[in-house]
Computed example of a mutant assay.
Amino acid sequence: MNHTATASTIPTSPVAMNATSTDTDELVFALSNDEPTAQSTPLPQLTQMATNLVQAISCTTQPQQQQPQNPRDFRPGEIGFADRLADQFGDLLRFDASHQAWMVWTDTHWEKDETGFAVECMKNVATRMKEVEVPVMRAQIQNYGDHFTLRAKELDADAKRLHGKNAICAALALAQSLPQLVTKHRDYDADC
Score class of each variant (00 low, 15 high):
151 R>A: 14
26 E>P: 04
79 I>H: 06
100 Q>G: 00
140 Q>C: 00
52 N>Q: 05
4 T>V: 05
114 E>N: 07
9 T>K: 01
89 F>K: 05
94 R>V: 11
162 L>F: 09
151 R>Q: 08
104 V>R: 05
177 S>V: 13
144 Y>L: 15
59 C>Y: 14
36 P>T: 01
32 S>N: 11
88 Q>S: 04
127 T>F: 06
54 V>P: 00
68 P>F: 00
126 A>T: 00
26 E>Q: 14
162 L>E: 02
10 I>P: 02
185 H>W: 11
47 T>K: 15
50 A>Y: 04
102 W>E: 05
170 A>H: 10
79 I>K: 04
65 Q>A: 12
107 D>M: 11
103 M>Q: 09
15 V>Y: 04
115 T>A: 07
167 A>Y: 14
65 Q>R: 01
2 N>K: 13
121 C>H: 06
48 Q>H: 13
147 H>C: 10
124 N>Y: 11
114 E>H: 06
14 P>H: 06
62 Q>A: 14
112 K>L: 09
133 E>G: 07
13 S>F: 01
148 F>L: 06
43 L>M: 14
179 P>N: 05
91 D>R: 09
109 H>S: 15
125 V>T: 02
125 V>M: 09
184 K>M: 04
39 Q>V: 06
87 D>F: 09
41 T>W: 03
45 Q>A: 12
67 Q>V: 11
165 K>E: 05
94 R>L: 08
183 T>V: 12
151 R>Y: 09
178 L>D: 04
100 Q>P: 06
139 A>E: 07
46 L>I: 08
1 M>D: 07
19 A>K: 10
56 A>K: 08
94 R>W: 06
110 W>Y: 02
20 T>K: 02
97 A>T: 15
120 E>R: 11
21 S>L: 07
104 V>E: 09
39 Q>W: 11
140 Q>K: 04
125 V>W: 10
166 N>L: 11
59 C>T: 14
150 L>G: 04
81 F>Q: 14
159 A>G: 06
154 E>Y: 09
135 P>Y: 00
17 M>D: 14
100 Q>C: 01
172 L>V: 05
91 D>A: 13
19 A>L: 03
176 Q>D: 09
166 N>A: 15
42 P>M: 05
126 A>W: 01
165 K>S: 08
139 A>M: 08
168 I>W: 03
139 A>I: 03
143 N>I: 12
10 I>H: 11
107 D>F: 01
7 A>L: 10
4 T>P: 00
170 A>G: 08
89 F>N: 08
182 V>E: 00
98 S>H: 03
51 T>C: 09
61 T>I: 13
4 T>Y: 11
19 A>E: 00
133 E>R: 01
138 R>P: 10
3 H>F: 10
112 K>S: 04
168 I>G: 00
4 T>A: 10
147 H>L: 15
